[in-house]
Nucleic acid binder design. Structure first.
Length: 806
RNA sequence: GCCGGAGUGGCGGAAUGGCAGACGCAGCAGCCUCAAAAGCUGCCGAGGGCAACCUCAUGGGGGUUCAAGUCCCUUCUCCGGCACCA
């Protein structure tokens, strides 16, 4: 008979909720802990990804409770966003009605999993009590010049009919619908995240408990490159062309320069030259080419000579100016110095067009100084040659010396280039936070006064699905007086990207009902930073970068006193089915509901933690679920050996040892999120109990119940109560192991001969080396192995093993 | 190309430089049963041997060490990020 999970689980869920066991308030003298999982978009249904994410957080959170911490473990909903608009059109309803219904369903699903949330702290970003503070933050940024509007070439998703941030473009497609992103010239709102680029990069070093790959991804995205801007004067002119290089050490080898075809100087310098026609037709050809085609790697590098020359400022050499398609206007200055001997792209281009070369770095592998014999550029390190007063220096050193010298001579400037661009946050959608700005004919761009916040989303909006910003069609919303001069003005009809909402929700949780600001300074001081954050790797750049930016902004406003919002980060792996991500289109979704129905939430929780370490991908297996279920039934039946037992049953010392060791192992594993091995240790203990059912197993069973309770909370509450405990297991203490059971008096010592295991002998743990040697050499197997051979070495690793070298 | 991560049985996965494969899944055998299910017990990397046991084995090749899945060098493959980025 399977254990009655469908009765046990709802019973305890109700109990936890009614007794408010997970509600916390700041309290002096208590250790606080803040566990947070990335809050979901309320689609109405949870999927296995949620289950994995939230089960990891819940197990850890419950463990921290038992350890004696006051654990804040909140949950909320990232409730703005496009799917609600689409659903509203499809189901002929309104986004807010739809969203609130979804939130209700979703909450029920989360409750059915037995998660330990403090529901009193719940927030939804679509409530005006929340988005009011989005607007407040926006206005603070606007005041500081960190939020600004500008016209530029922006990413446009034709399917979502809205703009996208650079971070939202994945492989040239929209992050949500994968539609190919187009470019459009539009006036849009940006946040000056670039103002924080140094700190966003440098502070990554503080994040000791973040995964390397996340830090690497952010660092790549921010993309700092240090180098020198060098000024090449045009021959017979006062004009200069700046080029950017990270290899100032190769400047003496620059034998020509190359401009991007779009470079503004090109048309000017070729005017009247014999080459003008050819150059213009080349420019036409390149501009007709698709941008992605042009930047793909295997396309041959093409270019033409402009007929113009410039002067290399370090040696006054006159060198030709070319234009080529492999130089991009978007990066650096749109112009490069070409050093074919030490840059492979320049090398290929120079060979193709028969341009001169000169070696300036002498690497260890280079035998001749004659570039004629090169068949590839040498991009490694070496000593400077043909480099004037820098000859003989190691190039890495020369790189710095040359840069400094160029600055002194005013022929160059040390510079840093960044890949990170400002964050485009305006969206031409309805279901988001209205941007609190009014446009006045006389006063220009005017901020909505703080006391008029929130600018509420109008409710009676018709969704036709025919495109264009829906808010623009609501006259009462758009037409307002200017806050300054009271003359008729027009309200901004774009809304904020939803990533704005999620960039600070972790702070809101510390004081979710606070109405004098986005969060209460004191509460934030107590709870923040988040001690443990858990979520998917897909947010490695987007959400995590934006949240770090907001945190630094709040620090600059003196609202908080720390730099980084998330102390420790765990990125959980995806749940796969048959080697692929579960998705509707693949039709391989396993619905958590059906698993709960057939096996219970405890089984699902146990399985998902046991099947793989949390940070790696896990393959879904129905057999695995059955195994987990089998194990829980086995645990449930342990009660038979605890209740109504005959008096005078003997306590097994071996079992006590196993029990205390298990406590030690599970505690250590939990600290390191090694749920899979923690569970396997408990499984071993359960196996050991079944080997000892004729003895008194009560201590061991009690340990099993406590150790499993973070993973399997409902069943363990039930068993805890069955053992006669009156209070919730959450009021119990995490078990402590006793040293005397961990220490061994006798151990089985493996004996290796030449590193290979040949025998084992049982010896007292504190045996002297002399005694041990005697025992070992007296062992029959050892004798037969070393028979007639000389023992060259006798290595004893105390309490570990013996290795005899013969 | 640069940066980050990973390669261990049929499968998921264990191993502070010290007995490779814990635990689970699948498989095989037995017990229980009229029978089945459930449960319980045992076996379960490959090759050799009646057996005791031996040999090989952690992507490949070198090295350090008494001892390497683990450290170093090199190489291959896969996954992720960035990239004609100067």
């Amino acid at each position: 008979m399977a254990y009655p999970f469908s009765e046990i689980e709802p019973k305890w869920q109700k109990y936890w909720l009614e007794h408010k066991l997970f509600n916390v308030e700041p309290k002096t003298g208590h250790k606080k802990y803040y566990v947070l999982e990335m809050f979901p978009y309320p689609s109405g249904k949870i999927h296995m990804g949620h289950v994995r994410n939230y089960t990891i957080g819940d197990a850890y959170s419950r463990y921290k409770w038992l350890e004696g911490y006051k654990v804040m473990h909140p949950m909320g909903f990232d409730a703005f966003g496009q799917p609600a608009e689409n659903a509203a059109i499809k189901n002929n309803t309104k986004p807010d009605i739809w969203t609130h219904k979804c939130i209700e369903w979703m909450k029920k699903e989360l409750e059915r999993m037995g998660y330990s949330y403090d529901w009193d702290r719940e927030v939804s970003t679509c409530d005006d009590s929340y988005y009011k503070w989005n607007q407040w933050i926006f206005l603070k940024m606007f005041e500081q010049g960190l939020a600004y509007k500008k016209g530029s070439n922006v990413n446009w998703c034709p399917s979502c009919e809205t703009t996208l941030a650079n971070e939202e473009v994945i492989d040239g497609g929209c992050w949500r619908c994968h539609t190919k992103v187009e470019q459009k010239d539009l006036e849009q709102w940006f946040l000056k995240i670039t103002e924080y680029r140094d700190r966003l990069l440098e502070d990554l070093q503080q994040l000791k408990d973040w995964p390397e790959r996340v830090k690497a991804m952010q660092s790549n995205w921010i993309g700092r490159s240090r180098g020198v801007e060098i000024y090449f004067r045009l021959k017979d002119s006062d004009k200069t062309i700046p080029v950017f290089t990270t290899r100032a050490d190769t400047i003496f080898g620059a034998t020509y320069i190359v401009l991007a075809p779009e470079h503004p100087l090109v048309k000017e310098i070729i005017k009247g030259k014999a080459e003008e026609k050819e150059v213009l037709s080349f420019i036409d050809k390149v501009s007709a080419e698709n941008k992605t085609v042009r930047s793909s790697e295997d396309v041959k590098k093409e270019g033409v000579f402009t007929g113009c020359y410039c002067v290399n400022p370090v040696n006054n050499e006159t060198i030709p100016i070319w234009i080529a398609d492999y130089v991009l206007m978007e990066y650096g200055t749109g112009a490069i110095m070409a050093v074919p001997t030490h840059d492979q792209r320049d090398f290929l281009f120079a060979e193709e067009h028969n341009l001169p070369m000169r070696i300036v770095i002498h690497g260890p592998g280079i035998k001749t100084m004659d570039p004629e014999y090169l068949n590839a550029a040498y991009e490694g390190n070496g000593l400077q040659v043909n480099s004037g007063q820098f000859n003989g220096l190691f190039n890495e050193e020369a790189k710095i010396k040359i840069a400094e010298w160029m600055e002194e001579e005013k022929i160059g400037k040390i510079q840093t280039h960044w890949r990170l661009r400002d964050w485009l946050i305006s969206r031409q959608r309805y279901w988001g936070t209205p941007i609190p700005i009014i446009y006045c004919q006389k006063c220009g761009i005017v901020a909505v006064p703080y006391e008029e916040l929130p600018v509420k989303l109008p409710e009676d909006v018709s969704f036709t699905g025919e495109g264009g910003s829906p808010l623009g069609k609501v006259k009462e919303f758009v037409n307002v007086p200017c806050p300054k001069c009271k003359s008729p003005a027009r309200r901004e009809t774009d809304t904020m990207a939803t990533f704005f909402d999620s960039s600070w929700y972790f702070l809101r949780f510390s004081s979710p009902r606070f109405n004098n600001g986005p969060f209460d300074k004191e509460a934030a001081k107590y709870w923040m930073p988040v001690d443990q954050y858990i979520g998917g790797i897909e947010h490695a750049i987007l959400h995590l970068l934006y949240s770090r930016f907001f945190t630094k902004f709040f620090k600059d406003l003196n609202m908080i006193d720390f730099d980084e919002p998330f102390k420790k980060l765990l990125t959980q792996g995806m749940v796969l089915k048959d080697g692929e991500v579960m998705s509707k289109s693949r039709g391989n979704i396993v619905d958590p509901d059906s698993i709960i129905k057939n096996y219970g939430a405890d089984t699902l929780r146990l399985y998902i933690l046991f099947a793989a370490p949390p940070e790696v991908e896990m393959e879904w297996s129905e057999r695995g679920i059955e195994g987990a279920f089998r194990f829980l039934n086995r645990v449930w039946r342990l009660l038979e050996y605890c209740k109504d037992q005959p008096q005078g049953k003997i306590v097994s010392f071996e079992l006590r040892k196993k029990t205390h060791r298990t406590i030690k192992e599970v505690s250590e594993d939990l600290e390191n999120f090694k749920f899979n091995t923690a569970i396997s240790s408990v499984m071993e203990l359960v196996n050991a109990i079944y080997q000892n059912v004729d003895k008194d197993v009560s201590e061991a069973v009690r340990a099993v119940i406590l150790l499993l309770s973070p993973f399997v909370p409902h069943l363990m509450e039930e068993m805890w109560q069955e053992l006669g405990n009156k209070e919730s297991i959450l009021k119990a203490e995490w078990p402590q192991y006793e040293d005397k059971f961990i220490r061994e008096s006798v151990i089985v010592m493996p004996i290796q001969i030449n590193g290979k295991l040949r025998s084992k002998i049982e010896v007292p743990i504190d045996i002297s080396e002399q005694k041990l040697r005697e025992f070992v050499l007296d062992d029959d197997k050892v004798k037969s192995w070393i028979q007639g051979q000389v023992v060259r070495n006798f290595i004893v690793v105390p309490k570990k093993l013996v290795n005899i070298v013969i």
